[in-house]
Each structure stands twice: as C-alpha cells, then as structure tokens.
Design a protein around this nucleic acid. Structure first.
Lengths: 206, 206
DNA sequence: CTGCGCTGTTACCTCCGGTAACATGGCGGC
DNA sequence: GCCGCCATGTTACCGGAGGTAACAGCGCAG
C-alpha cells in the first residue's frame, strides 16, 4: 500500500522531526520549521505528504492508533459498568496528561480544513466517539431508541471529556482519580439525584 | 469607555459588514473581504479593532450577549429541574440552529490565538460554562464536593452540548425536541440505569 | 486660518502554504 | 560498462494572509 519499502524509512525520519517540532512548538508549527528540524527544505515534505494536512494527518495517525487502542481496550474490559466507565476516563486522562502537546494536536484540529470544517471533534476524537457508540450499542439495552441514543451519547461523552480534560490539564484543580469520579458521577445522574438547595434570597449585591 | 460617541457609529457599521461577510463565508473570512464588504480598505479596520482578534472579538461579543442572556434566563426558569435542563438545552440548540454560521464563529475560535491556546472552549462557551457552574452551585446541594463538581460539570456539560450540537447541525439525525430528550436522558443517568445486553458471541469476522 | 482628529488611500513588509525547474547520486537491467 | 530510473535534494518563485507606514482630504474648534 502506502508502505513503499524505499520511501517509508525517510518518511519515518521526517515524521520524527515533525514530532519533535510539534512537541516543542505546539500544533501550529510551520512547515519551514519542520523542514529545518529535519535538516532539509520544504519541497521534500510536500513530496512525501502532499500538503500540510497530509503531514499532520500522518503525524496524528501515529498517535491516534495508540490512544484509540487504549480506549477501545478499556471499553471492553470485563468490569462492572461503572468501573469500566471509570477505567475509560482514566485511560484518556492519563494519555493527555502524559504528552499534552501531542494530544493537543490530536484533539484540536488546527485551521481551515475544508473537510467538514467547523467540527467540534477532530478525526481522532470522531473515532473515539464511534468507538463509544459501538460499545454502548453492544453492551447496553436502550430499547428502540438505541441507535439514536448511542450515536448521540458517543459524541456527547467525547465532547464532555474533551472539554473537561482540557480544563483539567490547564488548571489542575484536582488529582486524576478525583476527576474521573466527578465525570463518572455526572454520567451516573448525580446531577439529577442531588437535593435542591433552598432558593436564594435577594442576591447580596456583590 | 470604549463607546466614544464619535467613533462608535462607524464601528457599528464595520461590525455590520463583518457580520454579513461571516454570515456568508463563515468564520474564516479574510480581513480584505470584510473591508471590501464595508466598502473600504484594511487599515481602517485595523485602526478600529487593532488586529483580527480584536475584530472577531468585538463581533462575538455582540452575539455572545444574546446567547448568554438566553441561557442564563433558561437556567433560572422556575421549573422542575428536569424541565429546566431541557429548556436550557432547547434554547441552545434553537440558537445554533437559527444562525449556524454566527454560532460557529462563537463556538469555534479560529486559529493561532496565543491567548490560552488549545482550549476546547471559546470565550463565549467559557462564559456559558461559568453560568452553568453558578447555577449548579446555587440550586443543587452537592455537599462538600460542590465547588469542584460544579466547576467540572459546568465545563463538561458545555463541551458535551457543543459536540452534540455540532453533530446534530451537520447530520440532523432527529428533530430538536428528540435531541433535547437524548441529552437530558444522558445527564439523568439513563446510561447507568439501562439494562445490560448479553455479551456478544464471537465477533462475526467483519 | 490654523491645527487637530478622524476618514480614507496606495504601497509595502513578512510569513505562510504550496509549486516549478533544475541538479545529484545510487542501483538494477542490458 | 553504461544507461536510465527514481528518490533525493536544491533555489527561486507565486498568491494570499495579517499587519503597517506614509501620505491625502475633510470638518470643526479655537
């Protein structure tokens, strides 16, 4: 397929260079910077990857594989449902924690990609969403609404964990385990189960 | 303050032009295009707004006000909790449905803003998240974990609705009311309450 | 009338993604 | 041995983005 035995090793080297640059400068690293890091000039990059999206795509595929496999495995662990969910959450948070720049690249698709522009979910995350959808469909009985609910929830949960994970990475408000609990609690309907608070008096002016 | 009575009317005109362009071309409209739409040239835009971020910032603030007010009002409706949540969801989905391009601008901050780069949540959405956090804190008794949970959940719910809303706008898998139900069901823990499905047989090789 | 502040212009800079055209060097077939 | 292929690499360029100087009219206070 794409693994031409003559071409592939150089491709790997170039991707390694790109990886280093992204690790250092974040996902908006320029093609010039990547070429320089690889010790060459731009046209070679374009020969190998077509355009910037091609490069970034190849770069993300590398890491996506790992993340996706980890999430998929977690989704199929033979655990109680709650424990399984917690495990999935923990796997995701551990991943973004270990290499933030890389996972920012995976989770925050940069610029003007005409491919379904304006999506909240990057390709890697769409794959995760699909994985969650599949898991729900296979594991949980939702009656006739199953297909719609599982698809909706797959996207929803992915977006929820994405936003929560970003915020957690930035502000580190608590250890990972506690974050896992907070998210699982939300999915477990604790928001609906908790007691009401008495309505506020007139708000104290500050 | 920023409302210089001499400068402000022109600002409004320019923002109107920018609005039209964004409505037509999406959030990645160029400064040249906006200037042309306003019948002028670039430097004037830069005099008024400093840089591109300034312009789109001013543009978003306009619309943010409306969306935020609507969400805030919905969060404080005197309804049963479930009805209130459904109402908030409906308000948000109705908003993004009515003017997708504008709300894409609000919800998908374009590119290389060094200001807290790589955030999942645009400024407008962060404000919504804070609003949700506040509502949870004021209305629901979560015990000692209240502060952490409400903050986490504010971000999480925002991200969840963002992702779900984007997907819904793209694929329109169901009417709005059904989407509202699906999301409320998720928050109400239906994922945890539903029955297990019998474990799959060996996967059929495809 | 003079000066100030806003309006507007043309022309330019820098940097980015992307491309054309050309030069080099190893390696298999004849 | 020689030839041609193909990947490697180069320099130089294009178009368009954001952004900035420098200059030209205009309206209105003093």
């Amino acid at each position: 397929m794409t693994t031409d035995p003559r071409t592939e090793p150089r491709r790997e080297q170039l991707l390694n260079a790109a990886d280093r640059v992204v690790q250092r400068e974040g996902p908006s690293a320029s093609m010039n910077a990547i070429a320089a890091e690889a010790g060459i000039t731009k046209p070679i990059l374009y020969r190998h990857f077509g355009d910037r999206n091609g490069l970034i795509g190849a770069l993300t595929e590398r890491h996506t594989a790992g993340l996706l496999a980890a999430v998929r495995a977690a989704l199929n662990e033979p655990l109680e449902r709650r424990d399984r969910v917690e495990h999935v959450l923990d796997v995701y948070l551990a991943a973004i924690e270990s290499r933030p720049q890389v996972y920012r690249l995976l989770t925050h698709p940069e610029p003007g990609d005409p491919t379904g522009a304006g999506n909240a979910l990057a390709p890697a995350l769409r794959q995760i969403a699909e994985e969650i959808t599949r898991a729900i469909q296979q594991q949980i009985d939702l009656g006739r609404d199953g297909p719609l609910l599982s698809e909706t929830w797959g996207r929803s949960i992915t977006g929820m964990v994405l936003a929560a994970g970003d915020w957690w990475l930035e502000t580190r408000p608590c250890p990972r385990a506690r974050m896992v609990q907070a998210l699982a609690d939300l999915l477990w309907g604790r928001l609906s189960a908790a007691a009401d608070l008495p309505p506020m008096l007139a708000a104290p002016e500050a």
